[in-house]
Every structure is written in C-alpha cells, then in structure tokens.
Design a protein around this nucleic acid. Structure first.
Length: 978
RNA sequence: GGGGCGGUGGCGGAACGGCAGACGCAUCGGUCUUAAAAACCGAGGGGGCAACCCGUGUGGGUUCGAAUCCCACCCGCCCUACCA
C-alpha cells in the first residue's frame, strides 16, 4: 500500500456517443448561494434525456442484452405511491445493469381493458375508450416525473385494436390447438359487476368479487375456458427459473396435486335395472385407498349425472328438494355460516369392490362435482368430513387403520362391576382414574397403550362384569365387553349386532343408531375415536396386518391387478374461465351459425372490433348483447345468418403475453393476419427474449403469474417460442403502508400522493426514500418525517460538489486521512454493488449516506485532492441509478460531456478497500473484556499475545488456568479459563 | 383446519455464528439568533458512583461464543380452505 496507491484514480470513461451532448447548465457561478433545486434540474434533465434519445431501444447484438420488466399498470387515473414503490427501485436496478455494460430493455405499457372504464361510462356517459385514454395520458405525465429509463418507444396499450387483434389471434391459436373450449357450467358470477369471474378472482371465505367485494353467486352459463389443466403437471416444475420460494409454494398449492387411486364402485344391479353398458360404474377418487375396507357409504355431488337415475321413488321428492336447495344455497352464500355436513339418501346401494358389501349411496353438498370424479367413498373412521357425516346420519363407522400411538380407552361404570375391581386393576398394574359423568355416576377410566395389556385388561374386565352389563374398549381393539363374551366392531354387520344387544339392554340406548354414536356420547372417549394417520391395516380382509408405510402402494397394486382401480392423480387447479359478460374487453372471435355450429372468425378478419356506438345500460348488462350491428353477422363459413359471441375476454388474457408485445408493439398494424404469423418481430424477439428479470407484487402469484406461464408453455407447443418459461428471475416487492401502518385507502385518509411529494422534495428524494425505508420485499409504513433525512442527504451531496471551493484546504492532507477516505470510497463501491445485486436498496442508500458523512467530516482537510475527487465521483456514479437527476447534474458540473448514465459502473480495488488494522474483541469465557488494535491479517500467535497483555483481560484471567484460546480471524480472541 | 412470513431502542431498520442497534427519523444538551426555524457540534438500550450486571417475543437446547442454528410455546400479518 502506502505511496503507491495514492494517485492512481482515473475517472470512469466511455467513448463519447452521439447521444450525449454538452454539459448541462454547468458553469453557472455563485457557489455560495446556489441551492439544490430539484424541480429545476429534474425537469431539465428529463427533457434533455428525451431529446438525446438516451433511452431509445436499439437491438445491438454486440452487447449482452438484459430484459428488465416491471408489471404493467392499470390506468386507474392517478399514480399511487404504490406505483412509485414498485417502479422506482426496479428502475434503479435496470439503470445499474445498464452501467454494468448491458443493453437493457425496460419497457412500459398499460393494462387498459377492465371494468372501471365501463362503470365510468355508465355513470358519467364517457365512452370507455376516451376515459381510458385520458387516464393514460395523465399517467404518462406522472410516470415521466419519476425519471425512469423506460423505453417509451415500445409502449403498448392493450385496448388498442392493433393490440387486441393479437389477443384475439391468441384465442384462435389456442382454439386451434384444442386449448379453448366452451362448456355449460355453474360458474361464479358477480351480480354487481354483472359478469362471471375466474375462480382466482373470487376472494375470501365468503367468496367475494375481487373488484367490488360483492358476494358472488353461482350461475349456470355457457362459458369459454382455457385448458390450463393440461399443463398442471408442468406448472409444478420451476426448472431453470429463479423465482421466490413463496411464489413457487403458492402456485404449487394452487395446482394442488394429490396422489391416490381411482376405484370403480358399481351401482347394485337392482338399483339400476335398465343400466346401459358401463352406466353402473361409479368411479371415486381417493388419496387413501388403504382405507377402502372402511368405506361404509358413498356420497355423490348433488349435480352428479347419476343421481336422477338411481334415486328410488320413496326418496325422490327428498332428493329433488335437496338438489334444488343445494343449487339455491349456491346462489345465496353457500359456505358462509355453518359448515355442517348435510345430505340425503338416494335409496340406492352401491357395491364396494374390495369386499362386495352393499353400501348406501347418498348425495351431499360437501362433495364437489368439479373435483376428482364428483363422487366419494365415505370412510368415516379415517376422514374427518365423512366422520361428521356418518355420525350425524347414523351410518356405520368401522375402523380399518390402527392408531399409530396404540392408545385405547375404557370406561367402566362402578355399578356394572363387582366390588374389588379397583383393587384387581391395581394388582394387575393397570392404571386408572375416576371419571364422573353427570346423571350417570362414577366410572373407572382406563387408558392403555399396549396391545397385550389391552387384551389382559379385557379378560379381567369381563370377569368382573355383572350379567346384563357391558363396558367398552375403544381406540384399539374396539371391543364391547359383556359378562358372557366380547363383541368387536370390525364390520358394519358387527355394528348392527352390537347395537341390537345394547338396545335390548337399556331402552335409552335406542337413541343411538351406531356403536360409534354411542361411544361419541361419552366426552372422555372422543380423542381416540377418530384418526386420519397412516397405520397398520385392520379389518381389511387379505390386507389386514399390512403396515402403514406400505399399505397405500400395496392396495393400489392389488386394485390394478384386480382391474377395479388404478393409480391416479387429481389436481385442484381448474380450467381458466375467460368469458366476461362485459363490453370493455377484447371480443371473443367466435360466431355461432345455426348450420355450421361454432365457427372461429378467420384470422384474416381480425380484429373483431368493439362497436364505438355502444349504449351503456345502467343495469350493467353488456351493450354488445343489444348491439344489432355487432351481434348479427353472416357465418364466415356458409355465409348464412349467424350470431356473434357477445362475451369479451378476461383482461388477464391481455397481460399474459404483453412481454412479447413490447418487443415490437402493434406488430403488423393494419395488415391481415394468418395463423402462421408471429406476434412480434422475430429478429428482435430472438435478441430480447425471454425476460431476464421480472418484478411486481405477490398478489398475482395465482393469477397473472400462472396464466403467463401457461401461455408461454402453450406458445412453445405451438412453436412460437423455444423456451419453457416467460421470466427467468422474479422479485416481489412488498406493499407500502400508510403512516398508521394500515393499508392505504381513501376511507382511512392515509393516502400519500406522490405528486405532492415530488413537488416538495423532488423525484430523486422520493425515489431514494422509498428505497431507504426498508427491505424492498417487505414494504412498510410511510413516514413523512423520515423523508426529510433523505432530502438532507441530497442537499449535502449537492453542497459537497457545488460549494466545493469553500472548503479547499490550506495544507496538504495527512496521509492517513487520505487513506481512510479512499478505503471508505472503495468499500462503498463494493458494498453498494453487492446491495443492488440483491435488491437491498435500503442498505445501499445507508452506505452512500455514510460516505457522505465521511466527506463532510473530511472536507476541510481533503477537498480538491485526488482522493476527494475520486470519492465524490464514485459517490455520484453509485448514486446515479437511485437518484438519476442530481447525479447527472453534479456529474456534468464536474465532467461536462457524456451522461453519467453512460458511464461504466465503478470498480473497487480490494487492496485499497482492505482495512489496515482490525479491532480484535477479546473475550474471557465468552464475555467481552477488552479490545485490542492489531494489524489486518494478524496471525493467531500475535493476536493471542496481544489479547493476554490487555490489562482488563489480565484481571479476569488472573489466577486461573487457560484451558483453550479460540481465534476467529480478524475478529476476536476468546480465552476460556477454568 | 392447513401452509407461509415475521417479532431487535421511542420509530423505520442494520447485523444473520464472533463488539447488538450501521444508516435515518424523533428526542435531549450545546453553538449561532432579540427569539424561533434552519444549520452546525455533541449525547443517547436498561440498572449501577464504579468494577460490572441485565438486555433481540417466552422457555429450553447445541456451541468457547446465539438476535443469528435446533426444539416447544406465545403474539402479529399474509395466503388457502368441505379438494375426498
């Protein structure tokens, strides 16, 4: 080190480019009085950059590309501080990439279809197009005030016909590839928005509309769907992409893969005498084939097609009433209040294929037609819902999986056993407690966990029971012990036999239809009556005794062998419902012809334009339905009279492919399309795609972020793109909260308006403060005082450059001061670089502030020296991505010429950044007892010597034996004494 | 019910096996001023005169050493939910 490193500083340079021009306002003199005026310099530089085309997009194969994308905004009207929070840090990261030598593509656009525009049309009589475009105009202005490096030359607006022409083109392509279909189905419908919704757009326990919070209802409608379920399996894989664990988990749960088996039950022949071939098959999906022997009933969804066929005459009116009620309940709020399971017996029976037993077929609304096969086997002993259902309706419950914990419980009424029972239990080493049951007296309560002990206990119990009395052993063994024998609940028949005897014993037992109901009446038993864990199979014919870890696979293999079932996978994911009964969206390009059926609009006829003269009804019903010119068309195939589809597409359709649209917006505008087209300029796409870094909110994890993955995979299968995933890296920023730590909302009055802040502090300060507030992924509360600190920082940086002349030192600086400043400057380069790489903007800003502090403190001694210039230049370069305007202004004052944003990102010299000395912490038995200064890289022996010499340390080790000395290099010495 | 994230000064947060509280806000004291604001200088987790002791939601554990790793619990937020 020493003298060598002193004056090696050279300002970062790049060849002059034609786009950079003369210095900006540089030589305005009057250093004493010139104050930081962000409004002035920000406006000036924004105009200059624009005029110079600093952010024009150029495909340059000689430079590595970087496609940096931030989720596109919906043009709601005014820019929210949340937009700033989402966009300015990503701009900083994009700018950083650019200074690192990448050719960065950082586009912007508007997600411009959607309900608010249409509601405005209804309310204020403004056409949605005019309303939307006016908002976009206002937002463009506000967005420009951020000073972001957006590629405005590639802006895309999704409601432009030249954009939605391609959205419709995608619909046709998906249709051609069998990925779009129309189906009559009960779907979620928002009565306030007057449209159907995708399942992802229905929120919360009480199923409310994502947009307006109105509880949704079910409606049976013909709707268009995309077959996203074709890609369920692939959507679970995240190979080759670096996405947050949290999003991957949410998507994985959303897809909801379950492994199990499909098992073919059959309707008992006499219940379906005129069955068409195969009609008697009742397939269920189960994740627990190992519990098949415990299936004591079946439940079909009320909408299941077989319901009407199998219902008996006696049950018909009840069943029809229930089906009707289930549908009506759907229309009110089905799941809201109680979750109690309800159902009705159809009167029909099915045959359990594993043991040939007849089991009743019920219907119940806890079974969904849309999941699995719409039919389940009821295994009440090991499925919680089935347990509740069976208990309620008196259906037999037979345990078929042993409890892994082996717990068994037994209650014995005092009056039912001979005297001396307690003593006998004590002698047999069987622990017991006394359990008082109101109105029934005192009981012995025995809990055991060992099979042999249970059997011994059962014999003892039997020998003490009075005739006509009984007691139970539940949890394991499942005995009802009588003085003259032991009955076991091992089948539905046994259940009946037990009940028959108990009914005979006591009249009040007649209230119980099943043994389990009887046991369940005793509170004390309840924790052992049910479990849903894997365990050894019991009461399961040939499989009895199969251990839990093999049971499932063994049964599946056997089912396949027997031809009564097979391994199967079920997904929770449903197909994507894209039909919307609204005007302001891309029309679905389909025509219905009485003779040709469903006919896609020919590619060459796209776009299907929204009629401009639509009439917006206060009912919210789609104007397209009533627009004769739009609705009535000639069939593209036969030329006969036909009708157009009047539904439009979900707006998520537009944003599923927008990252491709940005490549060359409104590609082939005005030209006829064909199925062989590519929606963007191929050469440009080959250069930019796929997206390297995507940023946006986590709230789209199960919507936009799944849809766009689906789109890309479908596009790959159509041969449009050669890759599997649309975005290689994803980062989710947090949410900015109001000062009261609550979500910002107009009703709470805690909304922060970015325009006001920009006017007061300037965009640079707002940007830097948003980055400084905390980790980007966490979000956090706004603090109107906190921003002052960042504003002071900007003023200080300003003053360090502009008022430099004031502080010129009279004497040459001391060597150490120079070294200290250079070290800090190089450490700052190193740390800020690492921080921006990991999106840790908060610590990056903190480190720039620390450098500011050092410059302020060292100013009188160092101003104007090469070390000073180096530190100030680096400060400006490091600040450029975060606060682009002030960095540019000050850079130009120091180095008139090319923009600071065209400079190379600074590099650090590890030698200069290295600490010369380190403070070693000296601990005795893990407690800090002193600190010693040592040269950097001090070896263990020296460190040890220094540590032991420290007076306070000596005091603490005096008279004690040193057992061990731990040396953590460059950090600490720990002396262990005893 | 299931899953996830998080709990550190008065506040936002640093540190993520090695000096807890970087950086900033607010606070207090001082300088300047007739005064205030701004600016500048300085103080600052708690207890104690001090040596020291106690401190990262609570209780255990691992380790020479734990805010950091492990276990249990408490609290807050987010997602999901008759998914068979």
């Amino acid at each position: 080190m020493g003298a060598k490193a002193f004056f090696v500083y050279e300002p970062a340079r790049r060849p002059e480019t034609p786009s950079s021009r003369e210095p900006g306002g540089a030589l305005r003199k009057s250093p004493m009085t010139e104050k930081y005026n962000p409004q002035e310099i920000e406006r000036k530089w924004q105009q200059r950059w624009e005029a110079d085309g600093l952010y024009r997009t150029v495909e340059d194969p000689n430079r590595p590309k970087f496609y940096f994308l931030t989720m596109l905004p919906y043009p709601s009207g005014d820019l929210h501080i949340g937009h700033w929070y989402a966009m300015t840090p990503s701009d900083a990261a994009a700018r950083y990439r650019r200074m690192r030598g990448y050719n960065v593509f950082f586009p912007i656009g508007f997600d411009a279809f959607g309900l608010p525009a249409e509601n405005a049309a209804i309310k204020h009589g403004i056409h949605p197009y005019r309303w939307t475009m006016a908002n976009i105009e206002r937002m463009r202005r506000q967005l420009r005030s951020m000073g972001a490096m957006w590629a405005w030359d590639r802006e895309a607006v999704t409601c432009d016909p030249e954009y939605y022409k391609w959205t419709q083109w995608f619909f046709l392509k998906l249709y051609d590839h069998g990925l779009a279909y129309r189906k009559f189905q009960a779907v979620d419908f928002c009565p306030s928005c007057n449209t159907t919704l995708a399942r992802e757009q229905v929120w919360g326990e009480d199923k409310r509309c994502e947009r307006c919070d109105t509880p949704v209802i079910k409606k049976e409608l013909e709707q268009w769907f995309f077959k996203i379920t074709n890609y369920a399996e692939e959507l679970l894989r995240f190979d080759g992409i670096d996405w947050p664990e949290r999003v991957r988990l949410m998507q994985t749960n959303w897809v909801g893969r379950s492994e199990g088996a499909e098992v073919v039950f059959t309707v008992a022949p006499e219940c379906l005498p005129d069955a068409a071939p195969g009609e008697e098959r009742l397939v269920v999906f189960t994740t627990r084939p190992d519990t098949l022997w415990g299936a004591t009933f079946m439940v079909l969804a009320p909408e299941h097609p077989l319901v009407a066929r199998i219902t008996t005459e006696e049950q018909r009116s009840q069943v029809e009433a229930y089906v009707e009620q289930a549908r009506r309940l759907d229309e009110i709020t089905r799941t809201a209040a109680d979750k109690e399971k309800t159902g009705v017996f159809t009167g029909a029976y099915a045959v359990n294929p594993v043991n040939g037993r007849r089991i009743p077929i019920w219907i119940g609304d806890y079974v969904m037609m849309t999941y699995g096969t719409g039919a389940i086997m009821g295994v009440p002993s090991h499925d919680e819902r089935d347990f509740a259902f069976a208990l309620k309706y008196g259906l037999p419950i037979v345990p078929v999986i042993e409890r892994p914990d082996g717990r068994a419980k037994s209650l014995v009424w005092e009056g039912s056993v001979r005297a001396g029972f307690a003593q006998a239990l004590a002698e047999a080493d069987i622990p017991f407690e006394y359990v008082a049951i109101p109105d029934r007296g005192r009981f012995f309560g025995v809990t055991l966990t060992d099979g042999a002990a249970i059997d011994a206990y059962a014999r003892l119990l039997q020998s003490y029971l009075h005739p006509g009395h009984w007691a139970d052993i539940v949890g394991m063994r499942w005995h009802v012990v009588f003085d003259d024998g032991i009955m076991t609940l091992d089948s539905a028949e046994a259940d009946q036999a037990i009940m028959a005897r108990c009914h005979a014993g006591y009249d009040y037992m007649r209230r119980f239809q099943t043994t389990m109901q009887m046991w369940h009446a005793a509170e004390w038993y309840r924790d052992v009556l049910f479990h849903d864990q894997f365990g050894t199979m019991i009461n399961s014919g040939p499989f009895t005794g199969t251990p839990g870890d093999r049971a499932k696979a063994a049964v599946i293999a056997w089912l396949e062998e027997q031809g009564i079932g097979k391994a199967a996978v079920a997904y929770r994911l449903r197909d994507w419902l894209i039909s919307r009964q609204r005007y302001w969206g891309a029309p679905i390009p389909i025509v219905y012809c009485p003779s040709c059926g469903t006919v896609p609009v020919p590619y060459g006829d796209l776009p299907v334009l929204l009629p401009e003269d639509a009439e917006f009804l206060p009912t919210g019903e789609s104007p397209l339905k009533f627009h004769e010119g739009f609705r009535y068309v000639k069939c593209p195939r036969c030329g006969g009279d036909a009708e157009r589809e009047t539904d439009t597409m979900d707006t998520f359709m537009c944003s599923s492919w927008y990252q491709y649209a940005y490549i060359s917006p409104y590609h082939k505008a005005g030209q006829r399309l064909s199925p062989d087209d590519l929606p963007w300029d191929k050469e440009k796409g080959d250069y930019w795609l796929p997206v390297d870094q995507y940023t946006g909110g986590i709230e789209h994890a199960n919507m936009h972020l799944i849809y766009t993955r689906f789109f890309t995979k479908a596009m790959r299968d159509m041969g449009l793109v050669p890759f599997d995933e649309p975005m290689l890296r994803l980062f989710n920023q947090g949410i900015i909260l109001g000062e009261d730590n609550e979500k910002m909302s107009k009703s709470r009055g805690n909304v922060v308006a970015p325009d006001d802040l920009v006017e007061r502090y300037g965009a640079d300060t707002v940007r830097a403060y948003l980055m400084f507030i905390g980790p980007w992924e966490m979000g956090g509360p706004w603090n109107s005082r906190g921003i002052e600190g960042v504003y002071r920082f900007m003023q200080d940086v300003w003053s360090l450059v502009v008022d430099e002349a004031d502080g010129r030192p009279a004497q040459p600086p001391a060597e150490k001061e120079v070294r200290d400043l250079r070290r800090l400057a190089h450490q700052t380069i190193r740390d800020v670089t690492n921080d921006i790489e990991t999106f840790s903007f908060n610590t990056a800003v903190a480190k720039l502030m620390a450098l500011r502090n050092a410059l302020k403190a060292g100013r009188s001694a160092l101003a104007g020296t090469p070390a000073w210039d180096e530190a100030v230049d680096n400060l400006l370069l490091l600040l450029a991505p975060i606060a682009p305007h002030i960095a540019e202004e000050l850079w130009q004052r120091r180095h008139p010429g090319p923009s600071v944003h065209l400079q190379a990102w600074p590099t650090w010299d590890p030698e200069v950044a290295k600490e010369e000395t380190v403070t070693l912490v000296v601990q005795v038995n893990g407690k800090v007892r002193g600190k010693v200064e040592a040269p950097a890289g001090v070896d263990e022996a020296t460190a040890r010597q220094l540590a032991l010499a420290e007076p306070n340390v000596q005091r603490h080790i005096e008279g004690k034996t040193i057992r061990k000395v731990i040396f953590a290099e460059g950090k600490l010495v720990n002396i262990v004494v005893g």
